[in-house]
Design a binder for these strands. Structure first.
Lengths: 180, 180
DNA sequence: CTCTACATGTAATAAGTTACATGATTGC
DNA sequence: GCAATCATGTAACTTATTACATGTAGAG
């Protein structure tokens, strides 16, 4: 899924500007499994408009700002998106500095490992809260979106639990060595 | 973490060739949270050797092939890696076509959704098996690596359970509509 | 009036992926 | 002899990221 399909996905739910699309990937429902920056969104929107997969919607005269481009998906865009949605998904790609670092835990200062895990737990807490509240305003609507949200929460919860229950295994065992 | 640091991480555990490093990211302990291809590994090794962070080890005369370059980490390399390991980790990056697609589940053919989830469950089964066996031969050694392996298994298990327990929520409810 | 959030866009850069090109070794 | 795996490397391509550049609107 490249930035173009991602944008189509957002626009299928409702018309939005480039800025608003960005926000959906930063705070909204797509936050947890995709990330995209302006540098990829704006060029993507340009290409989509060129190919008539989206168009600039007539600006609503509710006093919105005039420099804002509200894009909406076209029929061709809907078809293009559906095509992408039913084709075989690429496998997930994860890049986790956290796990990479932790896999060398025994060679690191114990305090550093402690802090790393504390920060991670804090991260899970925050995001679980945010996910709980991610509601209609953000486009967290529909069976699919809710299912995915539940999935994310289940995974984060399990991750946090594992960290809490097993973090002591990473502690250096000073006393033990003496008895050897 | 770029390809260079990743390579240093592999080489810290034991000397390896570019090909073997690749395998660690494809099958080995780093499999689940990082991915890297030849096109990034070989240039990374070249750069690391140029900077004296790794060197070509004397070939063991056990009859190995002569075109194989066994790299080992140098002291400077160890320091460079440690520096990277104690600096603040970048946040995880996940890109999941699976979740993106599922978030539109209600607009997709039910059969497609079914198949998607079946494939995913199969994926979890396979990888949980592989992770259970990922042992010493592969460099799954040490507290850190084992902790990370356990973490991965906990997360995959939770993900699979969620899918199994909640997949029915994605089924279209034909009967219900009639009573409305 | 000032800060934050809204808003769009480009250019330089960095990075990794894919496909290509080649060849040796091992097991059957 | 043949296929699979081991093994190294490059070039073209695609892609996204970062930093830059600019300006508006609303809240306090």
């Amino acid at each position: 899924m490249d930035a173009r399909i991602l944008c189509l996905g957002v626009l299928l739910r409702k018309p939005a500007s480039g800025y608003e699309i960005r926000k959906q990937f930063e705070e909204g429902p797509f936050n947890h499994f995709y990330d995209t920056s302006y540098g990829s969104i704006y060029p993507a929107l340009k290409a989509l408009e060129r190919d008539a997969l989206i168009r600039v919607a007539a600006l609503p005269d509710d006093g919105g700002r005039t420099d804002k481009k509200l894009y909406e998906i076209t029929q061709a865009g809907r078809e293009k998106l559906m095509e992408a949605l039913v084709s075989a998904p690429e496998r997930d790609k994860l890049r986790s500095d956290f796990l990479f670092i932790l896999s060398f835990a025994e060679m690191l200062p114990p305090r550093h490992v402690e802090r790393l895990i504390d920060q991670r737990l804090e991260f899970y807490r925050e995001h679980l809260n945010a996910m709980q509240e991610c509601a209609a305003e953000n486009g967290c609507t529909g069976k699919g979106a809710e299912f995915v949200r539940g999935f994310g929460m289940a995974v984060y919860t399990a991750a946090a639990e594992y960290l809490e229950e097993h973090r002591d295994e990473l502690e250096p065992e000073e006393a033990e060595a003496e008895h050897a």
